[in-house]
Design a protein around this nucleic acid. Sequence first.
RNA 1: GCCCGGGUGGCGGAAUAGGUAGACGCAAGGGACUUAAAAUCCCUCGGUCCUUGUGGCUGUGCGAGUUCAAUUCUCGCCCCGGGCACCA
Length: 863
Amino acid sequence: MENTYNHKRIEEKWQARWAESKLFKVSADRNKEKYYVLEMFPYPSGKIHIGHVRNYAIGDVIARFKRMRGFNVLHPMGWDAFGMPAENAAIANKTHPARWTYDNIDTMRGQLKRLGLSYDWDREIATCRPEYYHWEQWLFLKMYEKGMVYRKESFVNWCEPCQTVLANEQVESGTCWRCNQPVLQKKLNQWFFRITDYAEDLLVYCDQLPGWPEEVVTMQKNWIGKSFGAEIRFAVAGRNEVIPVFTTRPDTIFGATFMCLAPEHPLVGQLSKGTDQEAAVNEFVDRIARQERTSRAVDQYDKEGIFTGAWCINPATQKKIPIYTANFILMEYGTGAVMSVPAHDQRDFEFAQKYGLKIIEVVRPPNPENRSGPMEAAYTGSGKLVNSGSFNGMPNDEATDAIVDLLEQQGYGKKTINYRLRDWGISRQRYWGAPIPMIHCPKCGIVPVPAKDLPVRLPEEAQLLDGGRSPLPELAAFYQVACPVCGDASARRETDTMDTFVESSWYFERFCSPRYNKGMFDTDAVNYWMPVDQYIGGVEHAILHLLYSRYFTRVLKDEKLVEHREPFARLLTQGMVCKETVRCEEHGWLGPDDADGEGDTRTCTRCGREATIGRIVKMSKSKKNVVDPEDLLSRFGADTTRLFCLFAAPPRRSLEWREEGVEGSFRFLNRIWRLVWAWLPQIRSVTAYEGPIEDLSDPLARLYRKTHQTIEKVTRDIEDRFHFNTAISAVMELVNRAHGIELTQNDALTASVMRLSIESMILLLSPMVPHFSEEIWEAIGYTDSILLAAWPSFRKDALVKDEITVILQVNGKLRSRLTVPADITEKALEEMALADERVLKFIDGKPVRKTIVVKKKLVNVVI
RNA sequence: GCCCGGGUGGCGGAAUAGGUAGACGCAAGGGACUUAAAAUCCCUCGGUCCUUGUGGCUGUGCGAGUUCAAUUCUCGCCCCGGGCACCA
């Protein structure tokens, strides 16, 4: 140990030692209790940013803590390596997606290693490697056999000039992000996973995720969006067709004065055919199809529709009502058709007003205002039925069941349940993704690639075509294949690749046996390690990634490949790391190097114009507000950087990044260093004090007590609530207390208590600042890594105080304090309070109405 | 619009079961050490008033309420962040 804290030397030294001794290597061991800590693996986008540091620091504290608590800890890391940014970078920098990805992985691995994170690097995986996606393709085939995968037509964002599909985030207010031309909707045949088969199961088990934040559970529930209602069949007047609709309000059926179909509804064309509406309807449907999804998604749009020329019969009233098609009806939800009740549904109300359709009130509010004139809005509350034939006077909630029962008897409908959740479309018309293992044969149709031919390798050397098009559909070496069934040489391989969410839906299971080459994973290993005991990641993945992972795990369970149903027992959603944005009118978002000045005024370095300081948002490359930890690492080292990220705020809170406090964390480590350096000769030759507290003089007894209190508090803060910030402040208090002890020569008792105190603070901090802790641990005489040491335990008797401070209030206001024996009786305490000089002064001779005595806390005198 | 979070000093945050508001740290100011600086150490640090003291009043987004006692519970409102958003 040197006399000053040299972070660079220490961090290099211990990282080398850990790597050499394989300290973080772990294997399944049925005799030990396992603990699986996982941080969401990153997309290798280039460099680590401060948000990653925060995420991984949190995970590392938990992993190291659990290890010191005696668990067999699995803590792996890998790369979510397929995805569009690689293609974007390839276009922008004329590099290759694979090259770019592998280079980034190397850079980022190096950065993670420099942070001293306790990963078992032997388990590292990258999802873009065939050894990984081989098994994903294998599972795809299994799912196909089971009917869990199917094909249907669906829309993609299509840019005609670039001849490519665009992801939603590449569509900027309806136009292509690269060429600024309008984006079209193109219908393509695509692959889907039947996640809706599991909608109910995924929903039910939401309530059995006690380790998940409630807000995430709620988001999942809302996303699945179960609603109860009825499917009611409306006959088309004068034709044989019957149109089923889904409604959650069958009680309002007598008020259904028209019907609306989604523009994509197959009956729209048939119904209008031959009527004088035909041309107008076709024009409308075409126009909506063109603007749909892009502009539909951008902002609220006006309700618009057109009469189809056909009528249907309201089964309750037996009256003819017109059939419209309208832009706000979604084909994907329910049946794509709606019975419109303008009096009791706001959307229908607006539509009816616009097109002059009949509005019939069927639910009367309990206290109807004496309205004069027309309704101003739909009434969606409860009430009694009117204008509803034999149901008049019935409360509407009762009528819901009664009406469905009647309709069911008459063959017009039945109770149903609908989910908002849609099947998962996984086809991507992109290059940098896992190939879908399917073959299109002109004779046999769609044929799966035989399992023995897996993996279907992505040709890594292929170059992207101009405009960023996938080379796969034009690369004969890839798509040319003989049909595995009939041998037809003109069969064609599927050239779409899979959504990258597929890779991240099972990587946590792969980590259990990452090199296994006979299947997705080794069953024993997975059943030992899974589920993940603590999963940590950003809230931004609260819905899709987590839902897909839960779904995949169910599929695997039903395939008898795993035993668990839920992949993540506990989930910690880390708040986002934010930073202000700066924008120049001409040059767009400005990074720290593109803007001059500080505080409220910045100028663009390129044009000198004043830049606007934008909102504080999540760090992202595109907004140029990412903070690179590189600078902090070289100035202060990994330990300080980690410590500061943990100290700045509790994990769940979002964090506005500012660096001012880093120095404080660095000072704190230096302060400990000096303390240890000063006491090193004394404490080296003694063991930590274990004797009775009675033998200690006052300042030593206080330090001893503080030490045990700190152990208790830090343990609780880490274990129960992940409040590392308060854990760190507790240790700071202990360090401050220890600094107050006079350095005396040849006093074995003092040295021994000091050793206890120093050992404890180092152990408590070691999950957060591992290199620093190792160095001191070694200096005070230990030869094994501190990670192998047991987490300190506290002595209960050391927490018991014999004297306590009680506060005295008069009418709830603090007026005085008393130091009393801890075991004082309430009566004695009350007497002392009423005799207190300052209390008497405030009572001021007035009669005491009552006194409240709270044991060990306070006395409140009410006058 | 609906559903979740959150609002506490100049700043990050603490107060874990309604019971001392502001722990711990940053910034700032003052002092010690030093030829000087850095580092370190000590002191002050919500506002306000005065008789300068274990001093009074006030103070946790705003307004009401429950309670002996509210940052904490209840109701209404404002602001910020996030999710969903024509889901019939």
